[in-house]
Amino acid sequence: MVGVAEFLFSTLIFPGLLFAAAVGLLYIGIDRKITGRLQHRVGPPIWQEFLDFGKLLTKEDITPAAAQGAIFDFAPVVALGAVVTVLLLFPVNSVQPALQSVADLIVIIYLLNIPAISMMLGGYASGTPFGAVGAWRYVVQLFSYELVFVLAILSVVARVGSLSVSGVVGYQLANGWLLFDPRLWPAFIAVVIAAQAKLLRVPFDIPEAHTEIVHGPLTEYSGPKLAVWRLVYCVETLAVLGLLVNLFLGGPVSHTIAGVTIPGVVDFLVKVFALLLVTTVMRNVMARLRIDRALRFFWTYGLLLVAVSLVLVVV
């Protein structure tokens, strides 16, 4: 009985849906505010994402007649489930994640791809050329960044010798952050860029480039379903950056300052925020790349960077 209650709590409240949604929406709100300031605008208030989310929930839900209804409807929910599960699988508050499993890194890599795949399916199912072109571009983009992303994680795994995130975090607790290992620097640079592509941020917002293909796969979504997509995007940002924090920045560490114990989650959120700043600045100083250039970039420079790390670590 206690086990079930604990499971429900961790899934729905912390670090599950509620926590993820609140932090994700807040962080994207901060991202928008910083973007505004960087662009010499006032920018929206940092709780703007909550307002947008609430507004979208009350709007009319339209499914185009040409859409494949079931796939179109379920794609956002599946994506949301996947990204929330990721948060359960890696350490957020302490070294122990909410759900324990062996080799959870592999599961996380898979789960992090589900939003992308759902978005493609949703795009194809929506029955518009924009959705189709967007989905097609997303496939190409997935094939460009994913290998770099996985290989960078693999170089961490090779360095630590553990396939579980808690293993990596535990190792860092004892031996210091992996970011301080020069052999992993190229991999870190590569994985931050790959994360930019995974999160569809400029210069890799190619699948939903709105001046070119309206909103790509999400063109036909409206109302609550679009709200869920927005939530997926926010939680995915938290999940991807959180994974990088766990792999490179030491994960959640609880500190005791003047006798007061600060829980690990605060440390975790601060580190995620630092990475968020990096990606926010990156997306504001560049123009969008063309899909073929993005592909070429990841298969040359990206791959080269992770290969250097992998070789250095293994040899």
């Binding site: 662009q39 480039a209 100083v285 123009a287 969008r288």
Partner: peptide, 8 residues
Amino acid sequence: IGFDTLFM
């Protein structure tokens, strides 16, 4: 070309 900062 997706360079919104320059646009602003």
